[in-house]
Amino acid sequence: MEEHPHQPAPEEPRTDGQPGDRELVERSQKGDGEAFAILVERHQRQLYRLALRMTGSEADAQEILQEAFLNAYQKLPLFRGDAQFSSWLYRIAANSALMRLRRKRRAPDALTDQPLELAGPRFSAEGSLEPTSSSDWSQRADERMMSGQLGSAINKAVEELPEDYRTVFLLKDVDGLSNEDIAESLELTVPAVKSRLHRARLALREKLGEFFDPPAK
């Protein structure tokens, strides 16, 4: 019996009768371009959303997708199946987006006015929540609001997060990666991921609170 030096990541069977990622990866590794095309078809929408949200630019998202899928294809011989293919692909795309953002940040005309401090709840000297944090808007959003001003407010609030916090938030709360995967992708410790995620959520919660209960002028 053949020995496997690594334990393949478990894969749930698909309900649409299509071959699973693992089979498609193995076929792609043997040079089956059609199998790789199915993988692209299957994962491109999710990668597009990630790239677009990270960069805020359609043009950048397009280039990131091209770069990520080509990079993934070229690295396929190195893919051992220890992780899900989708997670591995995500890491490649997230790294591509981050490198692009960092290059832009170093550019002479890059914006440098990122906020140094994130918004968060206010506490009294004794550590109790200030009354301004107390309105319950958790059930007040409806479809109409989501497609209108609320959707715009959320997009703006996420864009305004410092890049490192925004990336962690998007990968975790929007795309559902594990803290461990994010830590590996971004070369952070898991506690650092948790900390950034929590602070990003607190800042976004404040912005949403301001949307539902605008501060009196």
Partner: peptide, 12 residues
């Protein structure tokens, strides 16, 4: 709710 609303708003 912040998590759910953001996830919904950011789908594209």
């Amino acid at each position: 709710a912040t998590r759910g609303l953001c996830r919904k708003a950011l789908s594209r």
